[in-house]
Every structure is written in structure tokens, then in C-alpha cells.
């Protein structure tokens, strides 16, 4: 067990003032088998009426409209999470949703070729040992892509990322999903925060005999106590942290900063 303190910060700077900025945020972590959220508070600026809701994947949402003119939109989420050992949750929700490809994960030639490689390298592992096979796939994803910012976008498919031989955590996660789904292993996309300082992170969960297991192909590690999960869905689009439309003509620049640190255990 470990105790983590987290701070998620997002700012959008607009080049010109905008108004009627309508937004939906999926940035609040939720208690699950993997993590207990002990405290969680948020501030959104400009301040306005904010509603809370839940999407069909079970993710927490914040949404609202900032009517007044603004040039800077700020979101801050802070809290504490007690991390537990073990799985990322049980399969009491709809598993089948995560068996089928989306436009971002649908494999073409290159992924199918890579999958053939995956199968060859797991030929010795019994089919039923999903977790063991998926771990090998994770390693293969890691070998197949080089971490490189700026060569992919939020609309890059897994197939395209593989063709580019590189990308960011989103591309690693979606490539692993593509391989798993094509191999009949239900897999889903996860957004969250990683211990340390950086941006938000993305990884994969695979379904293995009644439980979801987190695999982080960008770092080639099994998800344990340093990953705080925020949301999950079929692919990046279901989990996008921020979605918004506004009036006015402006360029926007988004910056995200995440800090997650272990809390010193208080000794009485």
C-alpha cells in the first residue's frame, strides 16, 4: 500500500479573448479496486456553474459554460489516493464493448504482421494465460515504437503510428489494444497520472479471466502503485480529458502539468 498526493493542472491560453466556452472535462479519478480516492477537489477558472455527471463508461465528468470573455482557462485537480496492490478492477461492466475495434485501433497490414510475430513469440504460452501473453505483446509494442513527440496527433491510428515507428503514450496504448483485440483479448484505453512530474499518461488494460489488468507499454511495466487512473474507454476519444467549443477566433495552446508524489507516512 502506498499513499499518493496528486495535482493535475491544465491551462488553455487563447491568442484572442473567447466567450461562450462550453467544455466537458474527464479529469477526476474515481475509487476502484486499484485505488481509493481519499480527497479530491477541483477549481475551474473562470469560475462558473459546473455540473457533475458520469459517462456511459463510468467516468466522472465535469461540464459547464464560461460565458464571459476569457483568454486563459485553468483547471486544477488535487487530492490524495491510497493505492492498493493488485488488479485494476473486476469485470462487472460490459466487457464486450472492449472486444471490438474502433477507427483508431482497427488493424491493417502492418499490425497484422506484428500480430503474427506476437503469436510466434507466445507460441509456448497456453492460450488461456492471457496475462502472460499480453505482457509479451507489451514488450513487442515497446520495441516497435520509439518515444517521440510531435510525429503523431490525437487522430493518429494505431496502424499509422506503427508505420511511423514512433509516437507518444497514446500511440503505445492504442497499438497494444489493437493487437489484443485482434487476438480476441478484450482491451481498453486508460488515461491517468504517473508518479513523478510530467503530463497526463495513457496505458492499456486487458481483461483476463474476470479481472482487468493494467499494462503500461510506454514504460513496459505492469501497472501497480504508481499509476493513478482517471478514466477508461474504447480508445483515446472516449477518454479525452478536455473537450470544448467556444465563440471567437483564437488559436489555443494547451499545457498540462501533473505532479504525483508519495506522501511521507506519518509516524505517531
Amino acid at each position: 500500500m502506498s499513499m499518493l498526493r496528486f495535482h493535475y493542472h491544465m491551462e488553455i491560453a487563447f491568442s484572442e479573448p473567447v466567450w461562450d466556452h462550453v467544455y466537458t472535462l474527464k479529469c477526476l479519478p474515481k475509487t476502484s479496486e486499484h485505488q481509493e480516492i481519499l480527497e479530491c477537489s477541483y477549481t475551474i477558472s473562470p469560475a462558473n456553474k459546473i455540473q457533475e455527471g458520469m459517462d456511459s463508461f463510468g467516468n466522472r465528468m465535469l461540464y459547464g459554460t464560461a460565458e464571459e470573455r476569457q483568454s486563459l482557462f485553468l483547471v486544477d485537480v488535487t487530492g490524495r489516493a491510497k493505492m492498493r496492490e493488485g488488479d485494476s478492477g473486476y469485470g462487472n461492466e460490459d466487457i464486450s464493448l472492449y472486444r471490438y475495434h474502433t477507427s483508431l485501433t482497427r488493424p491493417e497490414e502492418r499490425i497484422l504482421e506484428l500480430l503474427a510475430d506476437c503469436r510466434e513469440r507466445t507460441a509456448q504460452i497456453p492460450k488461456a494465460r492471457v496475462y502472460d501473453r499480453a505482457c509479451v505483446y507489451m514488450g513487442i509494442v515497446r520495441e516497435s515504437l520509439a518515444y517521440q513527440k510531435g510525429i503523431t496527433t490525437i487522430n493518429t491510428t494505431a496502424e499509422e503510428a506503427l508505420a511511423l515507428r514512433g509516437g507518444v503514450c497514446q500511440d503505445y496504448a492504442q497499438l497494444l489494444i489493437a493487437l489484443c483485440r485482434e487476438d480476441k483479448i478484450p482491451a481498453r484505453y486508460v488515461v491517468g497520472m504517473l508518479k513523478g512530474e510530467g503530463e497526463s499518461h495513457a496505458w492499456t488494460e486487458v481483461y483476463d479471466n474476470g479481472r482487468w489488468v493494467g499494462l503500461d507499454p510506454t514504460n513496459n511495466v505492469v501497472v501497480e502503485q504508481s499509476h493513478i487512473k482517471i478514466s477508461h474507454g474504447r480508445d483515446y476519444r472516449d477518454c479525452s480529458i478536455n473537450r470544448g467549443v467556444f465563440r471567437g477566433q483564437a488559436d489555443q495552446r494547451q499545457r498540462i502539468r501533473v505532479e504525483v508524489a508519495e506522501e511521507a507516512v506519518r509516524i505517531l
Binding site: 462550453v22 467544455y23 466537458t24 455540473q51 455527471g53 465528468m61 459554460t65 473537450r243 467549443v245
Partner: peptide, 20 residues
């Protein structure tokens, strides 16, 4: 546009959330 096609100009942002 907040739930379905983001580029939709004819829809109503958040209508799906209040419907839900």
C-alpha cells in the same frame, strides 16, 4: 459536439448530458 462529432455546428453542446 461534446459527446458526438466535435465539429458539429448545428448541434447543442451538453444536450446529451441533460438527456442522460
Amino acid at each position: 459536439p461534446m459527446t458526438f462529432r466535435e465539429e458539429s455546428m448545428i448541434g447543442i453542446p451538453h444536450i446529451f448530458d441533460v438527456y442522460r
